[in-house]
């Protein structure tokens, strides 16, 4: 796993995050580079040098004033092209909120979220939806397949939204499903598939638009450990192919496949570390 080492930052003491964030907010460049060049190693050409996702001093508050609760506070980190990152935190740590912010399903109260260099906080809802469709592939714990659609149609769905001609999208969806060993289940309904198979379909759906980032939310949460391992293997394979993947989980054991981990607790970034 070459180049993985370069992708992280110094461990940050949680208590200082707010203060650092305020400084960083004044200079985007400073925040980005400081994280990026944390361990001082050079970045190999063609890999990891491209910034895909950057959270800059992001806070998400629910309610207002004194009674307001911060689900996410002063979050700062950068994800680069080809990284497999895990976002690890116990339940209630704010990782769902973080997932929604990274996935453009939600907007931060303060701070900025950049996707491939685009500031997504100032764009319209419709543009956000478009960006989400093109840039981000979601994989959910509950698979979220459409029960009346076959495996193939579920995978085609994102292309359907963009009016891709039927033959083209069918061809593409078939190819992806075949690659995930689902070629024999193309015309099965979700109810006729096992949990692992459903998650494969969901992964195929996340891949169909060739997104910049795959956001996987507890992808093994609804699976037994053996099937979970298989799904994890798929995620590893995708990473080997150069995909940028963010794995959001509370399960410490998933961290082993990732090369970088962002640990959060109580809405704050506790530690961002490189594992390999």
């Amino acid at each position: 796993m070459t180049g993985a080492k370069s992708a992280s930052s110094k461990p940050q003491p949680a208590g200082k995050a707010a203060a650092m964030c305020t400084q960083a907010a004044n200079s985007h460049e400073a925040a980005g580079t400081s994280l990026h060049t944390g361990n001082g190693k050079p970045v190999p050409p063609g890999m990891h040098e491209r910034e895909i996702l950057r959270l800059e001093c992001v806070s998400k508050l629910y309610g207002s004033g004194e009674s307001g609760v911060a689900a996410i506070r002063d979050m700062d980190f950068t994800i680069h092209n080809g990284e497999l990152t895990s976002v690890l935190g116990p339940s209630g740590s704010g990782k769902s909120t973080l997932l929604h912010l990274m996935g453009l399903l939600d907007k931060p109260t303060t701070g900025k979220v950049y996707i491939a260099g685009t500031d997504t906080t100032s764009i319209s809802d419709a543009d956000q939806a478009r960006l989400r469709g093109k840039m981000i592939g979601f994989v959910f714990q509950a698979f979220n397949l459409i029960s009346s659609f076959t495996a193939l149609e579920n995978v085609e769905l994102p292309l359907m939204i963009y009016d891709v001609p039927k033959e083209e999208r069918r061809k593409k969806a078939t190819a992806i499903l075949e690659r995930l060993q689902m070629g024999h289940r193309l015309n099965h309904l979700p109810s006729q598939l096992s949990g692992g198979e459903r998650q494969r379909v969901a992964i195929a759906r996340a891949l169909i638009n060739d997104p910049e980032i795959i956001l996987a939310d507890e992808p093994t949460g609804n699976l037994d450990s053996k099937t979970g391992e298989e799904v994890l293997k798929i995620i590893e394979d995708l990473h080997q192919e150069g995909r940028t993947i963010i794995l959001v989980t509370h399960d410490e054991s998933l961290v082993k496949v990732t090369e970088k981990v962002v640990r959060i607790r109580d809405g704050r970034l506790v530690k961002s570390e490189v594992l390999v």
């Binding site: 981000i136 769905l157 994102p158 939204i161």
Partner: peptide, 16 residues
């Protein structure tokens, strides 16, 4: 609702 959530996640706009 979950299906609608999914449609939004994969980029479908409100009008659509």
């Amino acid at each position: 609702r979950q299906e609608i959530g999914l449609l939004k996640a994969i980029g479908m706009e409100e009008g659509e």
